[in-house]
Simulated scan of single mutants.
Amino acid sequence: MLLLADKVVFLTGGTEGIGFECAKAYQQAGARLCIISNDSESIHRAKTQLESNATVFFLADVANAAQVQKAIAHCLAVFGKIDVIHNNAGISSPSKALHETTEQEWKKLFEVNVGGIHHTTLHGIEALKKSGGSILNTGSLVGEIGQEIHAAYTATKGAVNALTKSMALDYAPFGIRVNAVAPAGVITPLLRSWSQQQPDPDLAEEYLNNIHALGYCPEGDVIADACLFLISDMARFITGCILPVSGGAELGYKKLSSKQNHFHDL
Rank of each mutant, 00 (worst) to 15 (best):
residue 3 L to N: 05
residue 4 L to K: 10
residue 4 L to N: 13
residue 5 A to Q: 15
residue 6 D to Y: 11
residue 6 D to Q: 15
residue 8 V to K: 04
residue 9 V to F: 09
residue 10 F to I: 01
residue 13 G to C: 09
residue 14 G to I: 06
residue 15 T to A: 09
residue 18 I to A: 00
residue 19 G to K: 02
residue 24 K to H: 10
residue 27 Q to Y: 00
residue 30 G to L: 05
residue 32 R to P: 09
residue 37 S to V: 11
residue 37 S to G: 12
residue 38 N to S: 15
residue 38 N to I: 12
residue 40 S to C: 15
residue 49 Q to H: 12
residue 51 E to W: 07
residue 51 E to G: 05
residue 52 S to R: 05
residue 53 N to W: 05
residue 59 L to A: 15
residue 63 A to K: 09
residue 65 A to V: 07
residue 66 A to I: 11
residue 72 I to E: 07
residue 73 A to C: 10
residue 77 A to W: 06
residue 78 V to H: 00
residue 78 V to E: 04
residue 81 K to P: 03
residue 83 D to V: 03
residue 84 V to I: 14
residue 86 H to E: 08
residue 87 N to E: 12
residue 88 N to M: 03
residue 89 A to C: 11
residue 93 S to A: 09
residue 97 A to T: 10
residue 98 L to R: 02
residue 98 L to Y: 03
residue 98 L to E: 01
residue 98 L to G: 03
residue 101 T to G: 05
residue 102 T to Q: 01
residue 106 W to F: 14
residue 110 F to Q: 11
residue 110 F to G: 10
residue 116 G to S: 02
residue 117 I to V: 15
residue 118 H to G: 07
residue 121 T to Y: 07
residue 124 G to S: 10
residue 124 G to H: 02
residue 125 I to T: 06
residue 125 I to K: 07
residue 126 E to F: 00
residue 127 A to D: 12
residue 128 L to V: 13
residue 131 S to M: 06
residue 132 G to H: 02
residue 135 I to A: 00
residue 135 I to M: 09
residue 136 L to G: 04
residue 141 L to S: 03
residue 146 G to R: 03
residue 147 Q to N: 15
residue 147 Q to T: 04
residue 153 Y to D: 06
residue 154 T to Y: 02
residue 155 A to Q: 05
residue 157 K to Q: 05
residue 158 G to P: 00
residue 159 A to T: 03
residue 160 V to F: 00
residue 162 A to S: 15
residue 162 A to Y: 14
residue 163 L to K: 07
residue 163 L to S: 07
residue 168 A to Y: 01
residue 171 Y to L: 03
residue 172 A to D: 15
residue 174 F to I: 08
residue 175 G to T: 06
residue 178 V to M: 10
residue 178 V to R: 02
residue 181 V to L: 06
residue 182 A to M: 14
residue 182 A to N: 15
residue 183 P to T: 09
residue 185 G to D: 05
residue 186 V to Y: 01
residue 188 T to L: 10
residue 189 P to D: 12
residue 195 S to L: 12
residue 197 Q to W: 07
residue 199 P to A: 05
residue 199 P to K: 10
residue 203 L to S: 13
residue 207 Y to S: 05
residue 207 Y to K: 04
residue 209 N to H: 14
residue 213 A to H: 12
residue 218 P to N: 05
residue 219 E to P: 10
residue 220 G to I: 04
residue 225 D to Y: 12
residue 226 A to F: 08
residue 226 A to T: 11
residue 229 F to P: 12
residue 232 S to L: 13
residue 233 D to C: 09
residue 236 R to E: 12
residue 237 F to E: 15
residue 239 T to G: 09
residue 241 C to E: 06
residue 242 I to V: 10
residue 246 S to E: 10
residue 248 G to C: 08
residue 249 A to W: 00
residue 250 E to Y: 13
residue 251 L to Q: 13
residue 252 G to F: 08
residue 255 K to S: 11
residue 257 S to R: 09
residue 258 S to F: 10
residue 262 H to M: 14
residue 263 F to G: 08
residue 264 H to E: 13
residue 266 L to S: 10
residue 266 L to K: 11
